[in-house]
Design a protein around this nucleic acid. Structure first.
Lengths: 350, 350
DNA sequence: GCTCAGAATGTAAGCGCTTACATATCACTT
DNA sequence: AAGTGATATGTAAGCGCTTACATTCTGAGC
């Protein structure tokens, strides 16, 4: 961006000194009237506020940041804003932080580890005092860089037991164990899996692991031809379902999907292929988006309170900034929402 | 948030002076090596960069902002991040601006004019140098406040002919005129309308106006009992459709919806009620979300490139910041996507 | 060999604010 | 009447950086 343009950085031109003069006090009192009102006599405070209003003055943040060594800035790193899940997390985080006067800077990695590292660097250079980061699989040294600067951080959206990082989220592996258990209990023994890209995405990896582990407990494994990895879109869900039912080997009686978009796609394709859900095929999603209860049949899925993740992350970081040493936040619970897209498989029902 | 906590504001402790000493140059050269590399001899630049890396130093933004009167901050005001439409707009805006070193501050109004005004105030106090604001119906004086500070701004998501503000968006009224014309051309004469809250929302008001005006050209009016205003959710779409078909008077043969969520809800309810779409009832949406082409029947809707809005807004603001006086951006085109949820009404088809 | 423009670097004065410390004031004690 | 502590306000020293201006150094032109 070229230099030049406006003078005075968007301020009206007044400075603390001008306000002080107009109010007949010192700049120290002006500063206190804004930052520690209780330390200023009410009548004087009034005078200062009036003078400031008259001049259209407010403290210049750069001057304030420089003198107080506080920026009141926090950063949040997410893969993308184009996903409800992260957008609502950020929204809630921001609402909470701004109530305490902290402004949020957003960095999007677009699911790319290098971009993620860059965004974090930029936010640190901007002077963020706290950081929320989605997931923990990042460039080595990323978290060290952050804590090296003395910046508190929290990992969001995942809560892996044994993780060295404070994290706010749910146990992705456990969530998929729960789904697997539900389907196993119904009697399913042949499974398909449609999931989003797993590279640099610890949440997805944990989910797959959770599923595999629980299936293995019953001696069941996913056949490679029944596992599909690709974009988290309805279209890919459709395409994948078709490819799975067309694949050689016994047709799965249950298809587990990495999120609701994939599951909705699978549901649509099953209907298009004339495959009865749940009679011939059970399908599960993840996230419980608004559409999930409106599909036909309604989708069995896992509900996660993303806004709550944002809120808790904000609370944790605020506690850190307040100098407290908050305990690592407890995991959130994800909840299995049983709807009509899962049922007893045809073979055992027969 | 309580004060206290870390010293040195997240920096490593090194300052420009230390880097200068280590590199054997003056702080001026250090500054130039970072901000105007071409003005520094290559070997010296090299030395400075190495010294900085060694000390883990980067320019402190507050000091830089104070001295240069540039914050490299821009703000964007949106109703909520919980809506794809705005989230992708912000995402694109941010991507573009950050390529030019500008960091984006996000303010959410939650569709509340007071919160909007507050967020703008906060962002101005933070020193944003440019502002993108969704819609133009805001507290009186809001735009004056912004330009009073010499901050360039742009209104996004709407492009009302005759608006005094530079704006990047499409003509909401024209878009709904287009929809109305489409349905009129098919032969519809009885219409329903399901729309989102119109208070403080010029986009919605413009759409309704566009629809009404075009219907009026054919002597057609919306009957009050066939107009429903409420939350932009699938659930409200369902509920509204039921209420519309249950209402007294001739049942509409076409229901126009304010966005795709409402339309999808209407579609689902129509199916649940056994009303054939499009044979007995045509339904239109707005936005062309991913789900729109997957519904049964696929939804006729209006496509808007929200990311493009973000990009163009960013370009416009960057041009302003560069000191150029860019021409007001031209309106974007919204495009009617004809799918199978609209058709010739039964009566005239019969 | 000397001059001089132009480039590279240094010097130092702030940018606008906060805050430690000093000072003034006041209401009580003693 | 002087002393005391609490409270309110002022003084002034930076916070870390940028940049106008001054200085030094080059090599081209004569």
């Amino acid at each position: 961006m070229a230099r030049g343009g406006r003078e005075r950085n968007g301020q009206t031109g007044a400075r603390a000194l001008d306000v002080a003069a107009l109010a007949g006090v010192s700049t120290a009192t002006v500063s206190r009237a804004f930052n520690a009102p209780e330390k200023v006599a009410p009548d004087i405070r009034e005078k200062v506020l009036k003078a400031a209003a008259e001049l259209g003055w407010m403290p210049h943040p750069a001057g304030a940041a420089l003198a107080s060594r506080r920026t009141w800035l926090a950063g949040v790193l997410i893969p993308t804003l184009d996903n409800d899940v992260f957008a609502s997390q950020v929204g809630a985080l921001q609402t909470r932080l701004s109530a305490d006067g902290v402004t949020v800077l957003i960095g999007c990695s677009n699911y790319d580890a290098d971009q993620a590292a860059n965004q974090v660097r930029t936010m640190l250079a901007r002077g963020v005092e706290a950081l929320a980061v989605v997931g923990e699989s990042h460039r080595p040294g990323l978290f060290e860089t952050i804590s090296g600067r003395g910046v508190p951080y929290v990992v969001t959206y995942s809560h892996r037991p044994g993780s060295p990082h404070p994290s706010v989220g749910f146990d992705n592996a456990a969530a998929f164990r729960r789904i697997a258990r539900h389907l196993l209990d119904l009697g399913h023994r042949d499974f398909g899996l449609i999931h989003q890209p797993s590279i640099d995405n610890d949440r997805v990896v944990a989910r797959i692991e959770g599923l595999r582990a629980t299936l293995a407990e019953e001696g069941v494994a996913l056949r490679p031809q029944h596992v599909r990895e690709g974009p988290a879109s309805i279209a890919f869900g459709r395409e994948s379902l078709r490819s799975i039912v067309d694949a050689p080997g016994p047709r799965p009686t249950a298809v587990v999907c990495g999120n609701d978009a994939l599951a909705i796609g699978a549901l649509i394709e099953a209907r298009a292929l004339g495959i009865g859900v749940p009679d011939e095929l059970s399908i599960t999603g993840f996230d419980d988006v608004a559409m999930a209860e409106q599909t036909d049949p309604p989708l069995t899925t896992m509900r996660v309170d993303n806004a709550e993740i944002g809120r808790r992350a904000a609370d944790y970081l605020l506690a850190c900034l307040a100098g407290r040493q908050p305990p690592p936040p407890p995991p959130l619970e994800s909840r299995l929402i049983l709807r009509a897209s899962t049922g007893v498989p045809a073979r055992s029902a027969a």
